[in-house]
Design a protein around this nucleic acid. Structure first.
Lengths: 341, 341
DNA sequence: GTGAAAGCGCTAACAT
DNA sequence: ATGTTAGCGCTTTCAC
């Protein structure tokens, strides 16, 4: 069933039918009602391709993610997509997923732009000196960054970021207040800009109290359980092991927890652990629910927000970047710091 | 740069240029060379929407996945998509992702069909009595099922499945040979057809040796670490605990491993554990690499294969379903069964 | 081997 | 408030 056919059956012109169905105001209410009824009756749906060609808009949002799968396995990514998808479909957008090897990344964006496959893009997990921002600007494609790619001149791209610095500062302060003095930070690789900000927050909080963590206790690694396990084991074998460990993903938190247990120590008594997973954060001792939740500003909400920002951006509306603060949700303590030995 | 513009610059008709660029045979070799050169020079790319409209093909493959995120978090899904994506892009297809609440599933497929948004679909994680197969057939959309939805009359939809029954039979036999007699099965919920086949394989192997697992030792649960931990703890507290546990996901395997350790037992000595994660399977004791790999028939390959099958299917080629057998890759034992007590 | 012309199904000026 | 007319950029008969 095409628009033309529908129009013929109604004895109207395709134009009127199109207008009625697309909610243009200048259509007689009765006519519109008739048209809408007929459309439903015949199960008419506009052919997307025709519409796209005519309007020049693809009504699709692109997500280019590295094929390494590290990204896609990430529960954070899934949550983000869930939030974004909801907005997309409510606004009539489709989701175009490009899983490509990191090496083809630039080429993929170029192709997407040339073929006009998407109206806009979300940039995930910005890296330091990320080429994508400039690239997309050059290509003239609207985009929203989830995170911040640049430190100076932050306001140029539209972005939504979680205040990673502040949440780590906050968490560190919390542990300081509990009496901890020997800290360690198990962080992601610092090419991801999230990771660097987290370290800043951590160092800042320690600094303010005249404390510091030695370089050997601020580790940048790929966030796997095994890595976290190994590093933590090494720390715990040292003569003055850390009593407070901060890390930045659920996965690594599991490794830390295992190492603590295997060292014959108890989590929440001998060692306090705070994990801040990308945007979804909690203080992970054992138990469910976790005894202490840093925030649940919810990646899902972030996904929805980014989607909305992008759609507005595409529509030419003025959108401003946002930085979301983390909230501590449940204040249950993880137990006091151990006595100084 | 449009086709028309390019044609004008070359002093040719759009028709010829189109034919040359699309590899039609009836174009003079020289003309074609000129055209191709010019196209590259000007960076010409055909507008996908126009092409889509003209050909009636959307050049997109749809993946509808439940918003519950359980699916998307799944590393298996990520691997599958990685494999499929590679084929898609090499064949000029794009990936359309629809993350929708399970409740809107049917509606989503209908919409996709009516709007002609995709040329075909991959059906993930078929359930028992899955409505999608009949629905898609009704809608006339080509599709390939990853897994099998129906037991009887299996050959109707095009599918690619891993032989789950056989891999569990195999794994169970392996444990029987090691001397185990007390078995337990930690399985997914049986509305997922994978899960049921796994149980069949497990029971079949036991049966053949005159063994059986009591109903209380064949549990269907959502595959979370916590669930697995709890169930295993309960089992291990019983007077005659199982010495061999089979489970069907990496996540649940972690829970089992933790429970075994917490019970003061040793994995690979007191309890043998085999995990078969969706399609990516291994025998999980502690350590890396796992001491015993059931298979790595590789979900990625499966993704690529499904993609290829679907594309052929769309092209009208005859495709037949496949069932892939698992292979045991490394035969290192997990240690003997404990003495009967 | 090449081109002219007619769509694909829709939207958007521009009438009326 | 409705219709007429042109496209959108490409593919594809059908002539030559």
């Amino acid at each position: 069933m095409t628009l033309k056919e529908l129009a013929e059956r109604l004895g109207l012109s395709p134009t009127t039918v199109s207008r009625a169905l697309n909610g243009y105001p200048e259509v007689n209410a009765d006519t519109r009602a008739r048209i809408v009824a007929a459309a439903r009756e015949y199960g008419y749906r506009a052919n997307t391709m025709a519409r796209k060609l005519a309007t020049g808009r693809s009504m699709a949002i692109g997500h280019v993610i590295p094929l390494s799968a590290h990204q896609m396995i990430n529960p954070i990514f899934a949550e983000f997509m869930a939030g974004a998808s909801e907005i997309y479909s409510s606004e009539g957008y489709e989701t175009l997923l490009s899983a490509v090897p990191q090496a083809n990344e630039v080429q993929t964006y170029r192709e997407l732009a040339r073929r006009r496959s998407v109206d806009g893009l979300i940039v995930h997990t910005p890296r330091l000196d990320d080429p994508r921002v400039d690239l997309l600007r050059e290509l003239g494609l609207p985009f929203v960054v989830h995170g911040r790619s640049v430190d100076i001149d932050e306001d140029r791209p539209v972005y939504l970021d979680i205040n990673n610095r502040r949440s780590f500062e906050f968490a560190t302060n919390y542990l300081i207040e509990l009496g901890h003095r020997r800290f360690a930070l198990l962080n992601g690789i610092e090419t991801i800009s999230f990771a660097r900000r987290r370290r800043f927050g951590f160092e800042q909080a320690l600094d303010a109290q005249g404390l510091r963590a030695p370089a050997s206790r601020m580790v940048n690694m790929e966030m796997t359980e095994t890595n976290a396990y190994d590093v933590t084991c090494a720390w715990l074998r040292e003569p003055q092991p850390p009593t407070a460990i901060l890390t930045s993903s659920t996965i690594s938190a599991l490794g830390v927890a295992r190492a603590v247990r295997d060292a014959g120590l108890e989590l929440g008594v001998d060692v306090s652990l705070i994990s801040h997973d990308d945007d979804l954060s909690f203080m992970a001792n054992e138990g469910d629910p976790p005894p202490f939740t840093v925030q649940r500003s919810s990646v899902r909400d972030a996904g929805a927000k980014c989607a909305r920002m992008l759609i507005d951006h595409i529509a030419g509306k003025k959108v401003s970047s946002e930085i979301w603060d983390c909230e501590f949700i449940e204040g249950r303590s993880t137990g006091p710091a151990p006595k100084e030995t």
